[in-house]
Design a protein around this nucleic acid. Structure first.
Length: 432
RNA sequence: GGAGGGAUGGCAGAGCGGACGAAUGCACCGGUCUUGAAAACCGACGUGGGGCAACUCACCGUGGGUUCAAAUCCCACUCCCUCCGCCA
């Protein structure tokens, strides 16, 4: 949620900033309007409430002094006022709900540095990297044996079984087997080890309460993209960002605890409603995937460095895996609604000849913290923390990139050095 | 799933219809004393909302209810503890 106090203080500035990401001034104006009216009604109700409390006190006093008649009269007066107070409170509450609803719908204010734009076409590519680039070599050229889609390689080597996955859970639920399954496990291990120096490893539940989903902004907005376990009021997490952001919900941290950095490997579940059909073959887009997430609560001053650290770590993993990638600075129109600034990492996959998003590194300012009510103690009181997060990395697409990039002429896949320690059965994937 | 007990400020813990936003102890912070520290003493000491301010409202697990008045009474739920059952 954006800061209502700021909206009241500098409405033009906020309106202009939100316009950069396509929020109409009418939307903002209606929130300002409702908020104002809400405060008026609230004051009205509170004044009445104060009078009821005062009269009640007097009733007690009168009765204590055995002034029965005066007590009864005061009680009666208070009772009348109570009726008015309840009405006023109900009106205020009604408008409060309206304000909240409008408030929840307003996306975050984009960072000044975020490039302007309306859609993903206007994202800015900051840089590319590929093996050998630092030695002045050109972007790799790929042989024919590398121009094979991962779903074909997977079937050929018996390491990816999409048919079985579909039989068990429906389409877009991949089933990995043999070396393919082990590769997935190796990747998680590889990444968690790489982040262990600065990030506490967390193994959170894979489901979350509605309340928890609310605090990250996934609900109610993205309800249709989430799997629900309705009977128990639970949702399958779409990313570890959900549990990590809410871990300290409602708490006040000390400044020494910050930046509080966490990492977690979890399954991620996404319904991808409406996405079926296009761009969904193989592992391009799946309902369940494994991901290592990096996350930090920090002070506003630490936020930029914290975001850069996550971006650097994600990039480092890609470099160690020897996979070409590019970094995009998302334009205002393509930012996730809670984000102030986001960098996407896209890996190049030669078999399907595409750039696939494998990480999205975002700075949320205090937008999520306000909803989750996570604060830290400052000299003069408390302040909301900033949150940043990003994947490091999402494995389904990395899996695809690896098998396509490292496919040999003989059809086997020879994995990069970095993974060797984690592939007990050998770094060469072959049919067994 | 069954029976019982519990949930109050950073922690411990009292309060069980009327000035309770809440005793007390500990912790933390400021001060006195001291060469310095400890001890002792004095003081401050929850969070959030509204208001220029005086001030005011909300919050004692959560949500409802009773009452002139609820931390306190009633109902439902959640979580924790003990015991029983089931179980990876």
């Amino acid at each position: 949620m954006i800061d209502l106090a700021q909206l009241r203080r500098e409405p033009e500035l906020v309106t202009a900033a939100l316009a950069r990401r396509g929020v109409s001034s009418e939307t903002v104006a209606s929130l300002i309007q409702s908020d104002k009216r809400h405060r008026e009604l609230m004051q009205e109700a509170e004044t009445l409430r104060a009078r009821v409390k005062d009269l009640s006190r007097q009733v007690g006093e009168a009765r204590k002094n055995k002034e029965t008649e005066r007590g009864d009269a005061l009680a009666e007066e208070s009772k009348q006022l109570g009726v008015q107070e309840r009405e006023a409170s109900a009106r205020a509450e009604e408008l409060g709900a309206e304000v909240r609803e409008l408030h929840l719908q307003i996306p975050n204010i984009p960072a000044d540095q975020a490039p302007d734009g309306l859609s993903e076409e206007e994202n800015v590519e900051l840089r590319q990297w590929w093996p050998g680039m630092d030695d002045g070599q050109p972007f790799p050229t790929y042989a024919d044996h590398q121009r094979v889609a991962h779903w074909d390689i997977g079937t050929e080597l018996g390491i990816l079984d999409l048919e079985s996955g579909a039989r068990l859970a429906g389409s877009m639920f991949p089933l990995y087997r043999a070396d393919g399954s082990r590769l997935l496990r190796a990747l998680t291990q590889f990444a968690l080890d790489a982040h262990a120096d600065a990030y506490e490893e967390i193994r959170p539940p894979s489901v979350a309460l509605t309340e928890t989903m609310m605090s990250t902004g996934h609900l109610p907005k993205s309800q249709d993209d989430m799997y629900a376990v309705e009977r128990d009021g639970l949702w399958l997490i779409p990313t570890a960002e959900v549990p990590l952001t809410s871990m300290n919900r409602g708490e006040i941290l000390t400044e020494e605890q910050l930046p509080l950095r966490l990492t977690a490997a979890t399954q991620c579940f996404r319904r991808e409603a409406g996405a079926a059909g296009r761009d969904t073959r193989g592992l391009l887009r799946v309902h369940e995937f494994e991901k290592v997430e990096l996350f930090a609560y920090c002070t506003p001053d630490q936020a930029e460095a914290a975001q850069m650290d996550i971006l650097t770590r994600a990039e480092t993993l890609l470099r160690r895996l020897g996979l070409p990638y590019r970094v995009l600075d998302l334009c205002t129109g393509d930012l996730g609604s809670a984000s102030a600034r986001t960098f996407d990492l896209e890996v190049y996959t030669p078999g399907v000849d595409r750039w696939l998003e494998v990480s999205s590194v975002s700075w949320f300012r205090d937008y999520q913290a306000r909803r989750a009510n996570v604060r830290y103690r400052t000299e003069s009181g408390t302040a909301l923390v900033h949150t940043v997060n990003g994947s490091g990395l999402a494995w389904a697409r990395i899996w695809a990139a690896l098998v396509e990039t490292y496919r040999q002429a003989d059809g086997t896949v020879v994995l990069p050095e970095a993974l060797a320690p984690y592939m007990a059965g050998g770094a060469t994937l072959r049919r067994r």
